[in-house]
């Protein structure tokens, strides 16, 4: 954990513009959870010029649909879902003021451009680490859209939630850089 950059949302422009691709971060404090259906509803509200159920400006959205909390736990398993599905909504959410999103997998060019334009970042958590990441969530409540089940809008309190900067506010992309490097290295070995 030493060397990791600590972030406590809400985040300012300065908090994220200092981040670069590959930086390890630890998030503590409030983080919101939303995936496909909650995003669809929120973007509809934004398009109608109406307020969101909670103010997400400066906040961090974790793309997640957790498993139900077993008795005695605050949440079940809770790892990131594929971010690409939220690409349809992400530029609008960044324009509104969301400062960072956390998911898995890569983003399309319109999202990468939106990050540069709105001074924001895309972080990844390791996909499939549902049991591990749930340990970093200290409380969880549904703040809107309970009818969506796991797809509701969640508010989490997290402690030292680990993530990696995948796309920074300068337009760099961790996947492209990493895969190109390793494709070259692996082609060279017999």
């Amino acid at each position: 954990m030493t060397g990791d950059i600590r972030l406590t949302p809400p985040l300012s422009e300065g908090d994220v513009t200092k981040l670069g691709v590959g930086d390890r971060v630890r998030l503590s404090g409030t983080m919101y959870g939303a995936r496909d259906s909650a995003h669809k509803k929120m973007v509809e509200l934004l398009d109608q010029g109406r307020p969101l159920p909670v103010d997400l400006r400066g906040q961090v959205i974790f793309y997640v649909g957790p498993t139900p909390a077993p008795p005695g736990r605050v949440i079940g398993s809770a790892g990131p879902t594929t971010s690409l599905r939220m690409d349809a909504y992400a530029p609008r959410m960044y324009e509104y003021g969301v400062r960072a999103t956390v998911g898995k997998g890569n983003r399309g060019q319109p999202v990468i451009d939106a990050l540069v334009r709105h001074k924001a970042v895309y972080l990844i958590a390791i996909g499939g680490l549902g049991a591990t990441l749930a340990q970093r969530i200290k409380s969880a409540k549904v703040v809107a859209y309970p009818e969506l089940g796991t797809e509701a809008l969640w508010e989490f309190r997290v402690e030292d939630f680990p993530a990696i900067v995948a796309n920074d506010a300068r337009g760099r992309d961790i996947f492209k850089e990493g895969q190109d490097t390793w494709a070259r290295k692996l082609a060279a070995v017999a």
Partner: peptide, 24 residues
């Protein structure tokens, strides 16, 4: 490092009786 995390995650899931991944 990631492969180590995957091994630790499945061990944790078993120990804590939690789904290894939230997408069951």
């Amino acid at each position: 490092e990631i492969l180590t995390m995957l091994i630790e995650n499945v061990e944790l899931a078993k120990r804590e009786n939690l789904p290894m991944c939230q997408d069951t």
